[in-house]
């Protein structure tokens, strides 16, 4: 590769506290029967304490691989390379599994799309939370039980003492997600990774869970890495947004900037394909084509085969992530988009 993918570092915003999570040049490659598959390709990420960063992408963007990499949950067949991967000042790259496990239980935690699969189906909810507490804290069982019920109550589960005795299948999807959130936050983690936590829920329940995650994170000062494909959810939750496409970070910006002036064509396409952005009755604006096969990524910009603006350099050179305005960076040769495009003949 001729160009370093990161010629310019994104200038830290003024008065931002020391970042909690720093990811630089993270690549993840899986060995498959059909050859290596690069799921993440030199991505960067920073997250300040208490901040909510939304990671947006469609299938194949690598957003879920990112969360697993951060949690140390990738299978051993995955090859992880990074220039920097630090959490709370600790280097995660060389971390051994027992240490990672402690970190995962206490300082980092995760909630998933399908809470049913993240909970043990044959154990009562309360017992699972008590176990999670006592795994990392040496406190007597009755005390842990009280804490567990408190945690359930904090998530707005009605009759928490009763629900603690329920098995996961006896709860609705929304209640299960609440229980999972209670378990995830029981050690007051510094980082919560939420991987599509509301995708499987109904809209009215989704609204409740989004509020809950936001309120609890604010209360406990937890930073949230919110992984989603839904730009509506992003608008609701995020302080900052990182947009992923085909394993690469294509744009990162404070949420207001991203929604008022997106600087990557893929971001524009994602927003443009939302029904809300299309006049009623007019044809919708889809992104043309499909996500490329991860084993046969196009050269240059990964998005160029689908990009309506693609020109010369897009097909040959990987665009570097460039700062367009303070805090907003785009990996597009054409950014700033509107200025470049209007200057075109």
């Amino acid at each position: 590769m001729k160009h370093s993918p990161r010629e310019t570092m994104i200038a830290p915003q003024t008065a931002r506290p020391e970042p909690l999570l720093v990811v630089r040049g993270l690549s993840v490659t899986f060995a498959t029967d059909q050859g290596p598959l690069k799921a993440l390709d030199a991505v960067d990420l920073t997250l300040a304490p208490g901040e909510t960063l939304a990671v947006v992408g469609e299938s194949g963007s690598g957003k879920s691989v990112l969360s697993l990499a951060l949690m140390g949950l990738l299978p051993p067949t995955a090859k992880i390379e990074a220039d920097a991967l630090t959490f709370d000042g600790r280097d995660l790259t060389g971390l051994r599994e027992p240490d990672f496990r402690t970190l995962r239980g206490t300082a980092m935690s995760m909630i998933f799309q399908e809470p049913a699969t993240a909970l043990n189906p044959v154990r009562r909810i309360g017992d699972q939370i008590v176990e999670a507490i006592r795994l990392h804290e040496d406190i007597p069982a009755p005390k842990a039980r009280a804490r567990a019920i408190e945690a359930l109550a904090a998530t707005g589960i009605p009759a928490p003492a009763e629900r603690a005795g329920a098995f996961p299948h006896q709860l609705s999807g929304g209640m299960r997600q609440r229980a999972l959130i209670a378990m995830a936050l029981v050690h007051r983690p510094r980082l919560l990774i939420a991987d599509e936590p509301t995708t499987a829920l109904d809209v009215t329940v989704q609204a409740q869970i989004l509020d809950l995650i936001r309120d609890l994170a604010r209360e406990t000062g937890t930073a949230t890495l919110f992984i989603t494909h839904d730009m509506g959810v992003v608008a609701e939750m995020a302080d900052r947004v990182s947009v992923f496409y085909a394993g690469r970070l294509v744009e990162t910006a404070p949420a207001p900037a991203l929604f008022s002036s997106p600087e990557h064509p893929y971001t524009v396409g994602l927003l443009g394909s939302m029904p809300q952005m299309n006049a009623r009755g007019a044809p919708m604006l889809p992104i043309r084509g499909t996500v490329p096969d991860p084993r046969l990524m196009p050269p240059g910009c990964h998005f160029h085969p689908r990009c309506p603006f693609a020109a010369g350099a897009c097909r040959t050179d990987r665009p570097a992530l460039r700062e367009i305005r303070p805090g907003q960076a785009s990996a597009c040769h054409l950014a700033p988009l509107i200025e470049t495009l209007e200057a075109r003949p």
């Binding site: 029967d33 059909q34 043309r288 084509g289 499909t290 996500v291 490329p292 096969d293 084993r295 046969l296 085969p305 689908r306």
Partner: peptide, 17 residues
């Protein structure tokens, strides 16, 4: 229009077995 993914999914599953 839709582009097909350029990669042909290799080999039938029976030959892989």
């Amino acid at each position: 229009m839709t582009d097909l993914p350029a990669g042909e999914i290799p080999a039938g599953s029976s030959s892989r077995t």
